[in-house]
Structures are given as C-alpha cells and as structure tokens.
C-alpha cells in the first residue's frame, strides 16, 4: 500500500459512512441520559480498594505496635506505616490527573503537550511507587514475625531464606520489566514534546 492507496481507502471509507445518518432525537436523548448517569458512578474501584488496603494495613500495624518489642522493630514498624501512607497518596496522585478533563476546544497541539507532560509525571510517580513497594515488602516480611507472634514457621531459618530470596528474585524480574516499559514510554513522550516545541 502506498500513500495514494491510503488516501484512496480513506476516501472510500468517507463515502461509505456518509451515506448513513442514524442519529435522531430519541436516540440522542437516551445516549445523553445514560452518559449523565455514568458520570455519577465514576469510581475507580481498584484504586480505591488498593488505597483502603494500604490504610488498613497502616492502622493494623499501629494497633499492634505494642507487639514490636525492640527498638529496631519499632523503627521498621514506623517505616512500614509511613510507606503504606506514602504509597497510597502517590497512587491516588498518579491517577488523579487521568480524570481531569481539559478544555476540549483548545488546539490539538496544546492538548497533546499537556497529555505528554502528564504522562511523563505519571510514569515517574509509578516508578517511585514501585521502588517504595520493594522497601515495603522487606519491612512487612520483618514485621510478620512480631505482628503475628513467634511460631515454628517464623522461627525457622528457612522462612527467612525463602521469603527474602523469592521476594528478591521476583522484584528483580518484575522491576526490570516495569522500568523498561516506563522508560520507553517516557522516552517516546519526551520525543513528542520536543517535536511539539520545534
């Protein structure tokens, strides 16, 4: 297919869709009504649930803080609470912009510029969030031994070997994949921004 063929296909499609005029008052009223109701229900379930789990976990550690009997465990406990709260806030911040509708009457290039800047911010926040999640994982493994009481499992040296080694291997592979994907997106978006400012 050459450029002329692309143009020809586009024109053929234009003729095909021009022949059909299906929108009438009744259909339009129904569409508008449904659209209005959908705006009332615009709740992002996974994010809300994720945030609730983070806050719940922070509260749980707070309530069981007395179980952390040494100063080092108390420091880890405070760190875990902070991480849960920060991750929750970062997650909400990174998705917040997705629902901000801008001025749709603006020139396309302005919308693209805003889109590109927000996308870069989003990727950077997600990367930060991921890094903090690793730290959180380590703190949670450490706290498990105190928060749920000492038992055969947590007293076993295998618990520590397996939890840390499996956690570490998982994190290495997962982070490699995620960072690669975010870095690619950031690079492409920065190129677009450069092109827009030329």
């Amino acid at each position: 297919m050459e450029l002329d063929d692309i143009k020809k296909t586009w024109d053929e499609m234009s003729i095909q869709v021009k022949e059909k005029q299906n929108l009438n008052l009744k259909i339009f009223d129904n569409m508008s009504k449904r659209k209005f109701h959908s705006h009332l229900n615009k709740i992002i379930v996974p994010e809300i649930l994720g945030s609730a789990v983070c806050i719940g976990s922070a509260v749980f550690i707070g309530f069981n803080f007395y179980r952390l009997d040494t100063i080092s465990f108390q420091i880890v406990g405070v760190l875990a609470i902070l991480l849960f709260v920060i991750i929750c806030v970062l997650s909400l911040m990174s998705i917040q912009h997705l629902y901000k509708a801008g001025d749709i009457n603006k020139p396309y290039a302005d919308t693209l510029k805003k889109f590109a800047i927000e996308k870069i911010k989003f990727c950077k926040l997600q990367k930060l969030n991921l890094t903090l999640s690793y730290l959180l994982l380590v703190t949670v493994i450490l706290l498990l031994t105190r928060l749920f009481g000492r038992n055969e499992i947590t007293d076993s040296k295998y618990f520590w070997i397996f939890s840390f080694s499996i956690g570490y291997i998982f994190l290495v592979f997962f982070s490699k994949f995620v960072y690669k994907s975010y870095n690619k997106t950031i690079r492409e978006t920065e190129n677009l921004l450069n092109e827009l400012s030329n």
Partner: peptide, 15 residues
C-alpha cells in the same frame, strides 16, 4: 482532543 483525553483514561476505565 477528546480522543487524546480518552487515551489517558481508557486503561483505567471501569464502566
């Protein structure tokens, strides 16, 4: 412009 805004939110859309 709406297409661009749609791209932003499409992956997070739940309904």
């Amino acid at each position: 412009n709406v297409a661009i805004y749609y791209l932003k939110s499409a992956k997070k859309k739940v309904q």
